[in-house]
Write a protein that binds this DNA or RNA. Sequence first.
DNA 1: TACAAAAGTGCAATCACTACACTTTTGAAG
DNA 2: CTTCAAAAGTGTAGTGATTGCACTTTTGTA
Lengths: 192, 192
Amino acid sequence: MTEPGRRERKKQQTRQSIADAALELFLARGFDDVGVKEVADRADVSVTTLFKHFPSKESLLFDEDAEMESSLVRAVRERPGGQSVPEALKQHFVGAARGHADHPLFASFVRLVESTPSLRAYQRSMWTRHETALAHAIAQDIGAPLDDVRCAGLARFALESRDVIFGRPDREQAAEALFGLLERGWAADQQT
Amino acid sequence: MTEPGRRERKKQQTRQSIADAALELFLARGFDDVGVKEVADRADVSVTTLFKHFPSKESLLFDEDAEMESSLVRAVRERPGGQSVPEALKQHFVGAARGHADHPLFASFVRLVESTPSLRAYQRSMWTRHETALAHAIAQDIGAPLDDVRCAGLARFALESRDVIFGRPDREQAAEALFGLLERGWAADQQT
DNA sequence: TACAAAAGTGCAATCACTACACTTTTGAAG
DNA sequence: CTTCAAAAGTGTAGTGATTGCACTTTTGTA
C-alpha cells in the first residue's frame, strides 16, 4: 500500500480521459445536448465503464471534491487569531474566486454551470454535503454543542453567500455586503 | 369567462385524483419505490394525461404554489409599522408552521420530503423561484435598487432559514436564533 | 507460470419523460 | 337540436440516463 502502481495509474488515466472528454464536449455544445454515449465514445470507453468511474452525468464535471471540504474546514480552524469566523470564510471564498479568475477555462466553466439548471442543482448538493462538516468545525471552534443551530445556520448562510456572490458581476463588493451582514449578526450573538 | 364551468371542473377533478393517488402511494411506500405508471393507474388515467397535468413526478406532491409567493411578499409589505423585515419573515414562517402542525398528514408529508433527496431538491427549487420576488419586495420596501445585493442576500438567507428550521425538532427556538442573527446584522446595515 | 481480483465490455431492462397521431368529450354557435 | 372546433384524454413508440448481468481482458502477485 505504498505507491499507486501501474494498475491504479491506468485507472486514473481512464478516469481523466472521461472527465476531459466530458468537459470539452459540454463546453462546446452544452450539457443537455451531449449524451453520455458520446462522451464515452470520445474517451474511447464503454458507457458501462464511464458509469463505473462516475455516479452520474453531472458528476463528470465535478471531479475534485474531497479537497474542498477540508480546505473549507481549514479556513475556519486555522484562521488568524482575532479574526471572526464569517471574516475567515469571506476571505476563503474571495481568495478562491481570485485564484481561479486567471484560469482561461474557468470562466466558461462557471458560465456553463450557471446556465444549466441540473448542474446548478448538483453543485449546490455538493456544497450542502459540506455544510455539516463546516457547521461542526464552527461549533467546535466556539465551544458549542456540535448541532448548535446558530452554527448550522452560519454554515448554511456562508455557503449560500458563495452562491449569491458568484452570480454577481461585482463579486468582491457582494462578498463585503453579505458577509458584513453575517459578521455583525454573528458578533452580536457571540457577546453573550 | 365568469365561472369555471363543467369542463374546468372535470379537469380539476382529474388533477385532484392524480394528486391524491400520488400522495397516498408515496406516503405508503416511498417516493422512489412507486412509478408514475402506478400513480396513473390508481388515478385511472393514462401516463400521458398525468404528465399533461404535472410537469414532473416531483411536482405531483407540490400543488399549491402561486399562493405562497404572494403571501411571502405580503408578509413583508403589510407588516406592522416599526417591525423589521427579518422579524416579519420570522413570524410568517413560524405562523405557517403552527398552522400546519395540527394537520394529521402534514407531519408524514414533511418526513417524506425530508427523507427523499430528489424531493428536498425540488422543494428548494420552488422556494428559490420565490427568492427574486421576495428580494424585490424588500428592496422596494427600503427604497433600494431592485437588484441590491443585501436584499437579495436577506431573501436568500430567510428562505434558507426556513429549510434549516424545519429540519429541527425545536422549530420556534431555531427560528429565534437564526432570524435573530439576521435581524441584528440587517439592523446594523440599515443604520446608514 | 497460474490464478484471483480488478477493469472493462455489451446487452437488455427500468424509469421518467416527450412526440405523435388518434379518439372522445364538451362548450357554444347557429 | 345539430354542428364543429378546441380541449382532454389515450396508446404507442422513442429518447436518454442509469443499472444488473454475464462475460472477457488485464494485471498484481504468489
